[in-house]
């Protein structure tokens, strides 16, 4: 790869056109960096928003059904999976069914993910991966399930 770059530089460096290319190459990392970081941060935020919506829906269901039933858990996991989350890295803490009328129901969803960011140094653009956990909740309400 470096050989190809050297050939390219020998061909163009030294004339006006080449100078502009070299200048563009120098500026390019600074332009790529915000794009790459914006995309990665927005991706993480979209995942968090997915977790939030899943937890919110689960809580409303738990409130009506008196805790999270097997079907409710299946639907919650299915939703998260359909949005591309790795279920081995998802942890759901919830109040299981049955819960008496007026008692507390609670849900908390966490997800272990790799936060990917890019930095710039003398060696060029560098990728930094860090293991992080995003947590939503606990969100609590009460059960409205009443059976005579």
């Amino acid at each position: 790869m470096f050989e190809k770059i050297n050939v390219f530089l020998k061909k163009y460096v030294g004339n006006n056109k080449g100078n502009e290319i070299v200048a563009f190459v120098l500026v390019l990392p600074f332009l790529i960096l915000p794009i790459a970081n914006t995309v990665n941060m927005l991706t993480d935020l979209v995942i968090y928003d997915t977790m939030r919506q899943a937890a919110r829906e689960a809580l409303l269901r738990m409130e009506i059904e008196g805790g999270l039933t097997g079907d409710g858990l299946y639907a919650l996991e299915g939703y998260l999976q359909s949005k591309g989350l790795d279920m081995n890295k998802v942890n759901i803490d919830y109040t299981p069914y049955p819960v008496k009328y007026g008692d507390e129901v609670r849900v908390r969803v966490s997800y272990e993910y790799k936060a990917r960011r890019y930095t710039i140094g003398l060696g060029g653009i560098r990728r930094v991966d860090e293991n992080e956990t995003m947590v939503y909740g606990p969100l609590s309400s009460v059960s409205k399930k009443y059976e005579r």
Partner: peptide, 8 residues
């Protein structure tokens, strides 16, 4: 080529 850098 400095124009490109300044513009960038």
């Amino acid at each position: 080529g400095s124009g490109v850098i300044v513009f960038g």
